[in-house]
Design a protein around this nucleic acid. Structure first.
Lengths: 237, 237
DNA sequence: TGTACATCAGTGAACGCGCGTTCACTGATGTAC
DNA sequence: TGTACATCAGTGAACGCGCGTTCACTGATGTAC
């Protein structure tokens, strides 16, 4: 994204951002299905038709929010990992740092989390553009695990899963797999752990841990600890 | 629920059911936020105001759907467990049967699953009435695990989680815990597994496994197998 | 540097729709005697 | 068994709102000469 050259281009960029900001607020109030262009325009003291100079339709605005959210979440996770690395953390420490960053982001922006990992919006189909940003955290976690495996720092599973992997060849390749024994099943196992990560955050945000767990923050660490056992990763390292 | 005595009461019950049925269909089309009393009435060739003889408000209709869905899901799980028992399955087999029943139910009724475990509906707060039916599957799974533990059929964890449990005393008690070593942390671990169960189903239904996994059904079994390791349960038994 | 033209942002009215909820009402069903 | 009254289901109009999107238009900004 390069700097705008003209006053017009600058104003356009600013207002685009403002519209998205207001839309995020609306999202929090009324959910994705209730996101209303007119409400956004009202908030900005504009004619509702003016929004169409910036987003060709309601769904395009929603897509922009979706992509922004994935990018924001991914960036937060990447920053956390970079910090952990700088502090000399091992694979376990880095993994935990990324998990915690994801939860912290989600707690700060629960409605955007719901947009990413909650119920699909009826009538809305996310375009292909969203695929890449959606994969940023997995793309961040995969090499941590690979390096740990190569360095022999993963406890091998008690019983390996019977081949073949059930992960798509494309994804398997993206993840750097398949690996040599005893880590042939690592990618499959990592996908389960990733599911648990997302599931645990959603459980908390969607209210299913309310009155079930004494402290959500500590619970999350504990859940991640248990989940990491499946890939033989010790989060204290 | 006793049999209605008068024609009026019978008609009332029938129509109440029909309204809910149509509402479930509407739910699938437009999501919980888009559930419209008027649309339901239209579908039934009634005046929209007539619905109010059956449900005092839109939210009450939503609550009815929520409770029905929990009951339906819970019943499906209970039936699956009963069947597994009858076939002489051990704790692992029963556990897997319940997990599979939950997934099968969810695949059949994805929008009701989303109502239960997806994003909260903006502006809607589920009443206390929903708590009990929401706990039916956990209430089904807990004794399976307890009995397995008592029979010494659970592989103890590699490293027990440091006490105290992070599960609320009430829930801990409901689950039959806390247990004696080496199963002190079993309830905490089971909650992680429960989260993974729900998370895996949601991941599939919400589209996050699309092009990630070759076969969703087999993947589910595999995910449950990995998850069950955390409680030392062998699903093949 | 100044002018002519093209581009673009924003307006306001309109189209055609939707919604939840209330209310006075009719007519059928149920109940007590 | 028959009648009088009470209960209840369903109606249709109304209130006061909301929505996404289109379109012809005005006036400001940008660009090419």
């Amino acid at each position: 994204v390069s700097a705008p050259r003209t006053a017009r281009a600058l104003a356009r960029r600013e207002l685009t951002d403002t519209i998205k900001e207001v839309a995020r607020y609306e999202l929090a109030e009324h959910g994705p299905a209730g996101l209303s262009l007119r409400a956004v325009a009202r908030e900005l003291d504009m004619a509702s038709s003016a929004i169409y100079r910036y987003f060709p339709s309601r769904d395009d605005l929603l897509t922009a929010l979706l992509v922004d959210a994935y990018v924001s979440l991914g960036t937060a996770a990447e920053r956390a990992d970079a910090k952990a690395r700088k502090e000399g953390a091992g694979p376990g420490g880095r993994w935990l740092a990324v998990c915690r960053a994801a939860r912290a982001w989600a707690v700060r922006r629960p409605h955007e989390w719901a947009l990413l990992y909650g119920s699909p919006v009826p009538g809305y189909r996310a375009p292909e553009t969203t695929i890449e940003p959606a994969g940023r955290i997995p793309a961040l976690l995969a090499p941590i695990l690979l390096q740990a495996a190569e360095a022999g720092r993963l406890r091998p599973p008690p019983r390996p899963l019977p081949p073949p992997s059930l992960v798509t060849p494309t994804v398997l390749e993206l993840a750097g797999g398949p690996l040599a024994p005893p880590y042939e099943d690592l990618v499959d196992r990592a996908l389960v752990v990733w599911t648990t990560l997302v599931g645990t955050i959603s459980f908390e945000l969607f209210g299913h841990l309310h009155d079930v767990v004494t402290d959500a923050r500590s619970w999350f660490d504990r859940a991640m600890e248990v989940a990491a056992e499946a890939i033989g990763l010790d989060l204290a390292e």
